[in-house]
Design a protein around this nucleic acid. Structure first.
Lengths: 227, 227
DNA sequence: GCAAAAGTGTTTGAATTACACCCATGT
DNA sequence: ACATGGGTGTAATTCAAACACTTTTGC
């Protein structure tokens, strides 16, 4: 077999919404290279793992409960000088988790807008992950992946507000999501305790696509790989 | 560095539209493994190449002129048993080219619907590439990448028909694409020679996104033949 | 003339928007 | 009572689907 040999890693863009702000899970590196700098969680593919298996293992190792979280591949990154140790290809992954009460075992949540420097090419991977999440909220029901198992329409709307930095009309938003078959399944119970009229609680439905899509106001300059 | 070492390859899903049929470029493998079987063109990443560089080199090696063709990354594939020689990760890429008069140097065009077996996991990569192309036609101006530098609206519409297996209304389609700023730039000349009224010739414009998107209809219902 | 393709005009209906307005709860 | 958030009603508007109709070419 011709060609170089590569070490292969997986890196994770773990996103959540905390207090209305889109946040990403970052770890401070303890080892060289880039010791002391912030980086995405990740690590090398081990044994006979497939990529998604390795990403799931790394997600579990962050201390986040793995059950039911959305996890998908983003893209491969293999610039020849991206790692000073040698030829390392990393496959970025995107994970979406609800705002969990317990903080993750290692690492901390950082508001995405405040992140301006990361180790390796992780800033690019983060940008690609955020853009993927933004785009997917348009035409899929993925926003519910940011919510706990039971949630109100307000919580779901706050996900859109945080990820898109836009404010859809609450009344029209409510109609839109409830009129999409399979997006939300009513639990019959109402939330209690908050201010104002209690809202109904929903679970995620089986639908995965959103037809017609929920359009962002501002024309999105979609980032396209390879252009 | 812990973790296994991988050979890293790039594979290409090169799509074009020939006589109204979506086709993919396939090569017959001469070497083992899978000698004699059909496979996507591709090869190992060499020297200090980045992934897109390697994919561009492989595209050039097929005999297709490389200038101006669309090329983007699809995804990484690294199932532990995908290559009997050992641990090989491949990064699938999608290339869109116009229907060139000269056939490619190596390989041949195959209608996508007739491809039912390929070496390695290339059938999966092909499926992912076709689905990516289908989806991108909805919300980008990428269909023009299947057309020569100057083309008519009919040619562009035939791209949608071939890729989607649907038949948008020619009149509404024409209005849609001409009303999207930056999609098409008129050349001022008309095509000559065909049957019927000659159409205007256009070039690709600078726009990359399509707002609002061109929505695919309901699931495809093929017209019965011989009625 | 006739068929074929390009292109315009118009009607209809679906979906989004922007509100006015009422409902249910905590303080 | 009043503020706060949940939710329905409805008119204006925008957009796309459907299709009648005209224009321009080859045969």
């Amino acid at each position: 077999m011709r060609g170089n040999l590569f070490a292969v890693a997986v890196d994770l863009v773990v996103l959540t919404v905390r207090d209305g702000v889109l946040c990403v899970l970052l770890r401070e590196r303890s080892a060289k290279p880039f010791a002391g700098e912030l980086a995405l969680p990740g690590g090398f593919v081990q044994g006979r793992e497939d990529l998604l298996d390795a990403a799931g293992r790394e997600l579990a190792e962050t201390g986040l409960a793995i059950q039911g979280h959305h996890l998908e591949q983003l893209a491969g990154y293999a610039a020849p000088d991206r790692d000073p140790r040698g030829r390392v290809l990393t496959v970025g992954h995107l994970a979406l988790v609800p705002d969990l009460p317990e903080p993750p075992g290692e690492g901390a949540w950082w508001p995405v807008v405040k992140v301006d420097a990361l180790a390796f090419d992780h800033l690019q991977i983060l940008a690609d992950g955020v853009e993927r999440a933004r785009a997917k909220l348009e035409y899929t029901t993925l926003a519910a992946a940011f919510c706990p198992p039971e949630f109100t329409i307000s919580q779901l709307r706050r996900v859109y507000e945080a990820v898109w930095d836009a404010s859809p009309d609450p009344r029209n938003f409510s109609r839109k999501v409830t009129n999409t078959p399979g997006f939300l399944e009513p639990t019959g119970t109402k939330v209690s305790g908050g201010r104002g009229r209690p809202g109904q609680l929903f679970r995620r439905g089986p639908a995965t696509a959103l037809h017609p899509p929920m359009l962002r106001d501002a024309p999105p300059a979609r980032q396209m790989l390879g252009t």
